[in-house]
Structure formats: C-alpha cells, structure tokens
Design a protein around this nucleic acid. Structure first.
Lengths: 251, 251
DNA sequence: CTGGCCATAGTGGTCGGACCACATCGGTGG
DNA sequence: CCACCGATGTGGTCCGACCACTATGGCCAG
C-alpha cells in the first residue's frame, strides 16, 4: 500500500509534518506508544481488530522492531493490546476489566499512609456500590451473593474464605450495574492486597465480626434498603480501615 | 559469575529451584516484570533507589538485555520505575501520583457506555472529596480555589478555562486530605478526556451553568458546609453525566 | 469424497552484539 | 578556586539471527 521509500531514520518529513504531531519528543518508543494510542482513539483501530505485524508496524513508523516491541509490550501491560504468540497482536475489547487490570498493581505496591487512603477510596466506592445494588439487584444474583456468604461461613480455610469474600463483594459490585466501578473495586481488593492486610488483621479475632458485617450487608440487600446497605458496607470497610490506620499511624 | 552452560531454554535448574518461584510460566519478560515487582514489594528495592544496570539485571535473571528492557519499559509506563538516560534506572517514590498516572490512559481510551460509568465513578468520588474538603480546607487553600474560580470566569479562552477548571477541582481534591483520591480524580479528568466531552457540551450554552455550579461549590466550601458541598459537586458532575448519557444512549 | 494428518509459511518471543546520545565525575588548566 | 573538558558508564536504538508457536493448506489414508 504505502511504501516509505525514505531512508532508515527517514520517516517522510512531509508525513511527519502532515500529522502535525511533534516532530521528535521523548524517546522513539514513547512516540510509538502515543501513535498507536492515537490510532485507537482516532478510530483507525477497532476493539478486537488485528494489528499489522511487529515488523510492518516498525517499518511504518520508521523505527526498529526492538523499539516497536517495547511500545507494544507497554500497551500490553496497560491492557490495551493483547499479543498472541504465533498469531498476531490484537486490540482488546477496551472494556473496563481490560484497562483497569493495572489497578491491581497499584494496590500491590502502595504502602504506608497511602494504603489507608486507598482503603478510604474503596470504602467510598464500595458503600455506594452496595447501596446501588440494594436497589437494583435481581433475585438470582441475590441468591449468588447468599451462596458465597454461606460458603464463606462454612469453612475455616483462610484461602477459601478470602476467595468467597472477594466473590461476595464482586457480585455486589456487578449488581450495582456499573462494570467500571466493579473493575476498580476488583483491583482495589486484589488478592495480594487483601492477603497483606488480613495477615495481621484476622489474628485479632476479627473473624466473627467480619461474618456479622457480611450478614448485615446481605440483609440490607435482601431488604432492598439502600441506606442500610450503604451504612453496612461503609462500616465493614471502615472497620479494616480503622485498624490499618492504627497500624500505620504510630509507626 | 554464574554461567549457564545449559541449552537455550536452559536457565539453571538449580537456580530456578533455589528461588522457589515458578520454574517457567508465561514469557520470559513477564517473569522479569514479576521478579522486579517482587523485589520492590519485598522491600529489597526502596523508593528512589537506583537499580543495577540493565545489563547486570539481565545477567542476574539470565535473560537477554532486550527482554529485560521490555520488562523495564513495562514497569516504567506503570509508574513504578523511572529511567534516566545516561544515569540509571530508579524506583519511583511509589506515591499516588506516580502509580495512578496510568489512570489517564484508561480515561482516554474508554468509550461508549463505559464513559458514562467512568463519569459516575467520578461523581461519587468528587462529591465525597468536596464534602471532605468543606470540613478540612484551610483558609489559604480556599483562597487558591477562589483564585482559580475568578480566573476561570475572567476569560473566554476555552483552553484557559479548562486549565483553571482542572486546577479548581484538583485543589479541592487535595484539600480533602487524600492524595490517592486526588490522583484518581486527576486521571479521571485528564486533559483529553475533558476536551473530548466538552467539545460538544459547551456548544449547548452550558458555560453559564457551569460557572454557576462552580460558584455554588465554592460557596459551600467557604461556608464549611459538607452536605451542601457534596450536593453541589454531585450536581455539577451529574449535569455533564446526564448530558453524556443522552448522547451515548440513543446512538 | 471425506477426514485427519503433517509440512510449511508466518507470527510473536528471545537472543547477542554493535553503536549512539546523554549524564556524571574526575582531572586539568586557567 | 572555578570553569572547562575528556573519559567512563549508562540508557536508547538498531540490526540480524534464531526459536516457539499458530494457522493454513495440501496430501494421503480411509
């Protein structure tokens, strides 16, 4: 289609000026990242679509495959692209889950006072999500929530409890009808994040209390009482938040 | 030091077993990313600390520099590492701003119904942040907020208005005393995101209304009235949200 | 004719080396 | 004492080769 007959570092100057973008800012790889992001937001690349090969892309932008690979890798970890070995590179569906997966990394690496802040954000979102869920949840989804609640109370394996706890809240977040919020909350409650907090928390006999709180949340959902649900969820998260604050503060 | 006389896929079996980590899962680069992340969360790498050179790191993990570079690039875009040309690679401060910068990318590439959801999340956080700010804001910071408000009303340049609008809300978010939340809101209001929405929004004569809403938010802050502040902020964001919903819905 | 198998071409994944651009630090000369 | 400047080390870029995997199509047995 469009060959670039110019030299190696070539990249038609006319073309560069035509796109009106900065002729050269930052690293080459950074530019490539922006270009691909631009192609997507510009609509040239649809979700799920297959991109040209790394080699072709590199040639198009007039950069080496190494640099192009770094750009692709960057967009891959951001959840924008997906590379399938032997097949090709594809644009993700750009759904909430794809793009917000990186939020888990944030939660994992955040520490100190920021961890409390992160939990405060979660409290705000979780309480609102639970309130929304109380108003919108369907009977079958409510049953699913109850299933996780009972399963959580039926075992003593911390690993299993954590899994059901996670599913419990996730089910509620989805029921709130906002997938983006659910994805954020998912990241905020990522496995290692929870595990890190729980490690010391549950040793203080907070098990029983946690179960009571979960039960309270469920009752509020079943009663379709948004205000009660909001309060119960806020108290639930706030409990952990307060404990964490006491752990971090006087250090 | 440790030569790997084994084959291409080699990777000293002894070494792999010594670290006790999974012997081989996913791509080599992915493993390198996890390793580095692990070193940080493990505390071996402190914020601000300088990492070994790319070449050394690659040798340590027994991979090529190319692969290591991809791993580093990935962690760079995630805001975990920072590469300074000619100097070295450093761990960021791991502050909210560093890690949540990627949130802007999410906002930029989100589209369709998800965009409304994202704005809903912002409404929830922004209203709460504004309420908190009403209770906690200091006089001098309040003055800074007012400065942006008047500056916003004093010009007709959309570019400048947008800048002050952004600063207006950011100042409030910071005053809420939760940097993490402020960083998230910052990403949610990233430049291109706002510009994209505004492009069509302000053409409907929403300028005056926006100014009224900003004034109302400021009054609530000055009056130290959290409830009024929450309501004003929620209404402000909700206004845009509602408009966006009408634009996306009947498409 | 139909079905499954397999050679093959094409793709991303990895590697090693070379060179360039920049930052830093030390010595040197003013 | 300070400004300059070269050497050294670092990340940034490029190249070419090969490996691992997928997908495709033709071939052969049924």
């Amino acid at each position: 289609m469009d060959e670039t007959p110019t030299g190696p570092t070539g990249e038609t100057e006319a073309g560069a000026r035509a796109t009106a973008t900065a002729p050269q800012k930052g690293t080459v790889t950074q530019r490539a990242i922006e270009r691909i992001k631009g192609m997507i937001s510009e609509g040239l690349l649809e979700p799920g679509q297959r991109l040209p090969t790394e080699r072709d892309l590199a040639a198009q932008l007039g950069i080496s495959r190494s640099s192009m690979r770094e750009a692709i890798r960057a967009l891959t970890v951001l959840g924008v692209l997906e590379a399938r070995h032997g097949s090709g590179i594809y644009v993700t569906q750009l759904e909430a889950g794809d793009l917000l997966e990186t939020f888990g990394v944030v939660a994992d690496l955040t520490r100190g006072p920021r961890l409390v802040e992160l939990l405060e954000v979660r409290r705000i979102l979780e309480s609102t999500a639970t309130a929304l869920a109380a108003a919108r949840i369907t009977p079958d989804r409510l049953a699913a929530v109850e299933k996780h609640l009972t399963a959580m109370n039926a075992t003593d394996d911390p690993e299993e409890i954590l899994a059901h706890d996670l599913a419990f809240h996730r089910e509620i977040a989805v029921a709130a009808g906002n997938e983006t919020m659910a994805a954020i909350l998912d990241g905020l409650s990522s496995r290692t994040f929870r595990a890190r907090v729980w490690r010391g928390y549950q040793e203080e006999g907070a098990f029983a209390r946690t179960r009571r709180e979960h039960a309270a949340i469920f009752r509020a959902l079943a009663a379709r009482d948004p205000e009660a649900a909001r309060a119960a969820a806020a108290a639930h998260v706030g409990e952990v938040e307060e404990w964490l604050r006491s752990q971090v503060g006087p250090s």
